[in-house]
Simulated assay, not measured.
Amino acid sequence: MGFEIIEVLFRGICVGIAASITVGPVAVLCIQRTLSKSRRSGIVSGIGVACADSFMAIVAFFFYSMLQTQIEQYNTLLRIIGGIFVVIVGVYIFAQNPVPQIRRNRAGKTSLWQDFASIFGLTIANFIMVIPYILAFFAVFKVSSTDVGGNDVAGIFRAIFVIIGFFCGACAWWTLLVCVINLFRRRFRPRHMLTINHVAGLIIGFLGIYTILSTFFDIFPNVGH
């Protein structure tokens, strides 16, 4: 039993890492915050993504089959709303002036809670794209509700360890990414940060527009986060 739990936990970690390694709006935003704010802001943002992904992993793991009909029924509307939300975030980032933010950072007036809440909301807003993505990696690593579910206590514990592993794997990836990006942060000046905001805003906005267009046209495969 002990070895089985370790194996299930390891599979959960693998799914968490694999599902997090994507180039999408939240990844760009996490990098932008690390460079323009601080390592703490980047890590907290990454934890926000990990929490949102873990919540969606629970939904995907236990409830997706029950909700699949409703999700498919409103798929177009949900993708459009999610895409519009991403575009708004991109425009907001593009228009931001990093100099006042840098001054607030030096004065210790940054809000880590806002960083967490905003990126958590952005990730949840894209659930229509993220949940199938997570399900795909569950399949790749041979994790399914029938394997670890069931009504018995052991099955429930195995399911819990899958989610714990998923969360730990996601947190590990985002922490590693932020720490690597942070190595280059001190080389950037305010004018560089303005360029970063513009580039990040454009990329995030483009990904939002892509989401909307891909709803109506069969173009490239879905971008994760």
Rank of each mutant, 00 (worst) to 15 (best):
M193H: 13
V180C: 09
G155K: 06
F94A: 07
V140Y: 11
F137I: 12
R33W: 02
I81N: 07
N151R: 08
T195G: 10
G208A: 02
L135W: 00
I84P: 07
V91E: 04
F127P: 06
R33L: 00
G224M: 15
Y64A: 08
G108M: 10
F116P: 01
A50I: 03
W173A: 02
A19N: 10
L78E: 05
A52H: 03
R191T: 09
I17Q: 04
Q32G: 05
L202P: 03
A19W: 00
M193R: 09
F137C: 00
V87P: 02
Q96S: 14
V86D: 06
R39P: 00
G201S: 01
A27K: 03
G46E: 05
Q96F: 09
F220S: 09
F55Q: 03
K37F: 10
V28Y: 00
T76K: 13
F138S: 06
S36N: 14
F3H: 09
I196V: 13
A117G: 12
F62A: 11
A27N: 15
I93Q: 06
N151M: 11
F137Y: 14
C30F: 05
S118Y: 10
I80W: 06
W174G: 00
F206G: 10
T76I: 12
D115G: 12
L9V: 02
N222Y: 08
I128Y: 12
V178F: 06
Q73A: 15
V89L: 14
I163M: 11
F138V: 04
V15M: 00
C30G: 10
M66L: 15
Y64L: 14
I124V: 14
L122Q: 00
N75V: 13
R33M: 05
G83I: 01
D152A: 11
I219E: 05
I88D: 08
V23R: 02
L67T: 05
N126P: 01
E7V: 13
S38P: 02
E4T: 08
M129Y: 11
F10Y: 10
F206D: 03
R79E: 06
Y133M: 14
I131Y: 03
L112Y: 15
N151P: 08
R106M: 12
V28G: 02
F94D: 09
N182V: 00
Q32D: 08
I71G: 09
C30A: 09
F161L: 11
A170V: 01
Q101Y: 09
I204G: 09
V162T: 06
F206C: 13
Q96E: 15
V89C: 10
I156G: 10
F157I: 14
P132E: 09
G121S: 14
A27F: 11
V8G: 00
R187Q: 15
V223W: 07
I204R: 04
A159K: 02
G48L: 02
T110E: 15
G201F: 05
P25A: 08
S54Q: 04
P132A: 01
T175H: 03
G24F: 05
P221W: 00
N105R: 12
Q96T: 14
I84K: 06
Q68K: 14
I203E: 08
Q70N: 10
Q101D: 15
N222D: 13
F61S: 01
M56Q: 12
A60V: 11
L135D: 12
T123F: 05
F55W: 04
A136F: 15
L67F: 09
F157R: 12
I212P: 07
N182L: 07
